[in-house]
Simulated assay, not measured.
Amino acid sequence: MTSTETFQIPLETAEVYEARFVPGLFAEWAPLLTDAAGVRPGHAVLDVACGTGVVTRAVADRLGGDGTVVGLDLNESMLTVARRVRPDLAWQQGDVAHLPFPERTFDVTLCQMSLMFFPDRGRALAEMARVTAPGGTVGIVVPAAISDQPAYHGVVSVIADEAGAEGASLVQTYWSCGDLRELQDLFESAGLTSVTARTHTGTAHFDTIDGLVITEVEGSPLIDRIDDATYRRITERSREVLARFVTGDGALHAPLVGHIVTGIVPA
């Protein structure tokens, strides 16, 4: 299970990510992951591939000043936005394949909606386990397979059809960790035990269908892989495939299915 997508983005895309992806999609999942991993006051927590910091902030709120949390990301643009939003928290640049921490540093290590972008997912989980203390928890969230996505299946098909090979590669990577058996095998190969998995159907909330399209295109590297005409066609066709998820006031409530997986570092 590997991927060549590294999701490197400029600052303006990171700003769109924080303004749109976080409230529209990711804010719902952060407390679910925090709960599943058993984060509590007194813990030292690492948020890997933290992006603009939605999970890091959720953990900080849970700790209530009793404990520590570090948000780590490879992308400095993401960290620039994270520091602007919460300058009081610890943010660090780093690669999940070579985490810049000693063994057994954290009680809990988390990763939300990013495992699919790591070039070597097995190594990433092994590194997350390495820096987690014995008895501690490693927890992730990833989207379920695209075939299990009633709303996003149509949008991804449109983008893959319109955006060419590079655009298709990007959007297909999002859903590439959706096999629960493969995820459990990855956790066990990383030496983690008591692996548990839960599938949750969340909701992507946007004011309009176009709001989702803007988020998916302008909040990701896709914006640099398509021209204006392609963007217009993606928007127009997405209106058709997502129409059944629009509420009476014109808002879009699109189901998003994800897997929450946790494992324990053996003593």
Rank of each mutant, 00 (worst) to 15 (best):
residue 87 P to M: 09
residue 110 L to I: 07
residue 55 V to D: 08
residue 236 E to L: 14
residue 210 D to E: 13
residue 261 V to Y: 11
residue 37 A to W: 10
residue 125 L to R: 07
residue 17 Y to P: 01
residue 173 T to I: 01
residue 111 C to I: 13
residue 112 Q to V: 11
residue 226 I to S: 03
residue 19 A to D: 14
residue 120 D to A: 03
residue 260 I to Q: 13
residue 139 G to N: 11
residue 214 I to E: 10
residue 183 L to A: 05
residue 247 T to N: 11
residue 50 C to S: 15
residue 15 E to R: 15
residue 252 L to R: 05
residue 156 V to L: 12
residue 81 V to E: 10
residue 191 G to F: 13
residue 105 T to I: 03
residue 32 L to D: 11
residue 187 F to C: 01
residue 154 G to P: 13
residue 217 V to D: 02
residue 186 L to V: 08
residue 229 A to K: 13
residue 69 V to T: 08
residue 158 V to N: 05
residue 2 T to S: 14
residue 150 P to E: 09
residue 118 F to E: 05
residue 216 E to K: 10
residue 136 G to Y: 14
residue 190 A to P: 11
residue 248 G to E: 15
residue 60 A to T: 01
residue 256 L to P: 12
residue 45 V to K: 14
residue 142 V to D: 15
residue 117 F to R: 04
residue 20 R to F: 07
residue 170 L to T: 03
residue 165 A to L: 14
residue 202 G to E: 07
residue 245 F to H: 13
residue 126 A to Y: 05
residue 217 V to S: 05
residue 256 L to C: 06
residue 66 D to T: 11
residue 176 S to D: 03
residue 252 L to T: 06
residue 239 R to G: 15
residue 29 W to G: 03
residue 20 R to G: 00
residue 28 E to K: 00
residue 115 L to S: 07
residue 64 G to R: 13
residue 41 P to N: 12
residue 60 A to E: 06
residue 73 D to Y: 03
residue 42 G to F: 07
residue 168 A to Y: 00
residue 118 F to C: 09
residue 25 L to Y: 00
residue 200 H to Q: 10
residue 197 A to N: 05
residue 152 Y to L: 15
residue 209 I to V: 15
residue 216 E to V: 12
residue 240 E to S: 11
residue 248 G to L: 12
residue 49 A to R: 05
residue 196 T to D: 13
residue 189 S to H: 11
